[in-house]
Computed example of a mutant assay.
Amino acid sequence: MKWKKRWAAIGLIGVLLIVLIANIDTSKETVIYHVPEGFKGCMTIYFSQKGYEPLDMKDNEIIIDIPKDGKVITSTSQEDFNKIGWHKTEAYYLNNSGERIMEIPKSMYQNGLDSITNSDPKSARFTISFDGRSDYCY
């Protein structure tokens, strides 16, 4: 009987270690949203749009500057953007001079949504809100 309890305890400890290890944040990449001061609502990234600037990664960071209308248009494909995999996110309000004035709490931008229509890369987009809503932007 003692052995059964010991093995059960060892098994429980093993499961807890696996859960802890699986939840360690090992991502090196960070997506940083620069949000205009006072912006509330939805931001949408429109992917695979010819003639627009790509999203560039520098020093393991992709900085996404959100214009006042909330529409970010890029030539980067959704597939290429998603290749970064699991990543950290940060968001900051910027003043009119482009300086970071306040970090936005993660609770204000936690529900992002990828979408694509008829497998058309030009329709691919990612939408996220910066107003703390619990549902998705559409």
Rank of each mutant, 00 (worst) to 15 (best):
M108S: 05
F126R: 00
E37G: 05
Y46L: 05
L12N: 15
K40C: 06
D114L: 15
N111C: 10
K122Y: 03
E103R: 15
V72G: 00
S48H: 01
S107D: 07
I101S: 12
P54M: 13
I63T: 02
P67E: 13
S123L: 06
M1W: 13
D120L: 10
Y93W: 00
S134E: 10
S123K: 02
Y93G: 01
S115G: 15
K68R: 10
I18W: 07
V35K: 00
G41E: 13
I21A: 13
F39W: 01
L16N: 15
I66K: 05
T26L: 14
Y109E: 01
I21P: 02
S97Q: 12
E37D: 09
N82V: 12
N60Y: 12
K50L: 05
K106W: 11
Y93N: 03
I45S: 00
E79G: 08
K5P: 00
C42V: 11
H87C: 08
G85E: 00
R6N: 05
E29R: 14
I45C: 07
F39S: 03
W7C: 01
I45T: 03
I21W: 13
E37F: 06
D69M: 12
G41V: 09
Q78K: 10
F81L: 13
G11D: 11
V72D: 04
R100M: 14
C42W: 01
E103A: 14
I73Q: 01
L12T: 15
K68W: 14
K83I: 06
Y46M: 02
S134W: 04
G98P: 08
E99K: 14
S75H: 04
I24N: 03
M108H: 07
K40G: 04
D120F: 03
T74S: 09
I13M: 10
S119C: 10
T117F: 15
T89K: 11
S107W: 05
P36F: 04
S115A: 12
E79P: 07
G112W: 09
C137Y: 02
A8R: 10
P105W: 05
E37A: 07
E61V: 07
F47R: 02
W86L: 14
D131I: 01
D59C: 09
I73A: 01
R6F: 03
Q78C: 11
S97D: 15
L55V: 00
R6S: 07
T127R: 09
G51T: 10
L12I: 14
P54E: 15
A8E: 11
